[in-house]
Design a protein around this nucleic acid. Structure first.
Lengths: 257, 257
DNA sequence: TAGTGGTCTAGACCACGTC
DNA sequence: ACGTGGTCTAGACCACTAA
């Protein structure tokens, strides 16, 4: 007798309105959250799953891709597919409301901040940059793209734009250190106020590559404009943080009622 | 002569280390951002693209999926694939730092907030809920899942948990209106302080369905605990906002230096 | 070397929109 | 009725990991 039902069988209904790959994903997700599949344990190979469920390997992969993107599964090329272990790495936290630098944040958690300069330009601003920094026509900017790391692990890609006329001469060597805010401080340009936007986006090929993620992974995107005490914009920064390793924390208060 | 190079040809290198579908995605992305493909215009059909590029339709679809997830392309079943028009809908903004409700936020932008109750329970808390609300063992909670809308459009899924003993008797009818904070206020339980976490996650099948998104879309996930003036936790809320329609805004200040 | 996931093919049929 | 994207198949070969 050839029993064709493996122990991890998932009930599939070909006539259902729900596509088969979603049914497979739901079935696996249920076994994961119920603890049926232990954290860190390996799933059957894709070909084995396909054969056992009587579906094609493509369909199985479509299901696994869904769960991998949510972080429930971790796929390792040449090795296997595993149920993601619980909190494999501590998730850093940043307390907002106060104007602090990336470097200080990372240090306050006992980790070592780092930065790798990916690009350094002295050019004309984009329309977006010109508007955010209130630049007069023709005024040039410094633009720096850096990979921010914590204990050597990629955490964010940050693009900073500074008005050249305001900050004075800047060289590639000036931005290799971790903190741009510290650099500004030495020139008497401490930011005292900033407005920051946060939203969620999917990683494109470039960001995914830099951050060591799969394309399409969820990222926390921020956009920030900082002003000096005199009310002059000194920095326009856009950053993309890994959604799986970073979370922002803030404290909110009522209106004093 | 049969020239096999359509006007939208993309240079492909089969020997490249970069997979073909990524090359296709990059090529299309470049034509989109360069304005070569106008916003709102339709792309060639998948079968046509595949034939023109001499690759399989599966490979083309893999490339289109990448760009669609980033929001560059919009796919319409039965109709076609289009370059996403610029800001098809105004992106709402929420100013943080002040303790305000979802309803007030939406109203302050001139839109109409709404809520559809998806679930209402009176049960024992999860370990996570019990810890966040500082509940004594055995104490029960009300749990409400609501779909929050703006002008009728799904914007977020919010799961709120309230200590039953503190808020008093609650019925399904009490939570059908938009504002839970307003309800608490009528019982003398105005929150005056809250801590909120923000991070980015990928939509699972359930959230994608509720918010009208493709599975895997980027969501802004928030977690919030609110306290009354007396320091008692009154609400533990988890919300998932559409990444493409919502962005958080906050103002930051220096430490008074 | 053997097994795994990653990529790719050339089809097929279904579900949806539009005409 | 027709064209579109959505799903699914049964293979194939490559790239990586581990024994």
């Amino acid at each position: 007798m050839s029993a064709t039902s493996p122990p991890w069988a998932i009930p599939l209904d070909a006539a259902s309105a729900l596509p088969v790959y979603m049914q497979v994903a739901q079935g696996l997700e249920q076994r994961i959250v119920s603890g049926d599949l232990r954290r860190g344990s390996a799933l059957p190979a894709e070909r084995e799953l396909a054969a056992g469920l009587h579906v094609s390997r493509v369909t199985v992969r479509q299901a696994l891709a869904l769960l991998a993107q949510q972080g429930l599964l971790t796929r390792k090329h040449g090795s296997g597919t595993f149920v993601t272990p619980p909190t494999p790495e501590e998730r850093p936290s940043r307390t907002l409301g106060l104007l602090s630098s990336f470097s200080d944040d990372v240090r306050s958690r006992g980790q070592t901040p780092g930065a790798r300069v990916l690009g350094f330009e002295h050019t004309r601003p984009s329309p977006q940059e010109a508007m955010s920094l209130a630049l007069s026509p023709g005024e040039k900017v410094y633009r720096v793209r850096r990979l921010r790391t914590s204990d050597g692990e990629p955490l964010a890609v940050e693009d900073s734009t500074l008005p050249a006329a305001l900050v004075g001469r800047l060289g590639h060597a000036d931005v290799t250190d971790a903190s741009l805010y510290a650099l500004l401080a030495t020139r008497g340009l401490n930011p005292v106020r900033a407005i920051r936007h946060l939203r969620a986006v999917s990683a494109d090929l470039t960001l995914a590559e830099l951050l060591g993620l799969a394309p399409g992974a969820a990222l926390l995107a921020t956009e920030r404009v900082s002003w000096t005490r005199g009310g002059r914009p000194v920095e326009y920064a856009r950053a993309h943080y890994r959604g799986d390793r970073y979370d922002f924390v803030m404290e909110l208060h009522g209106d004093g009622e």
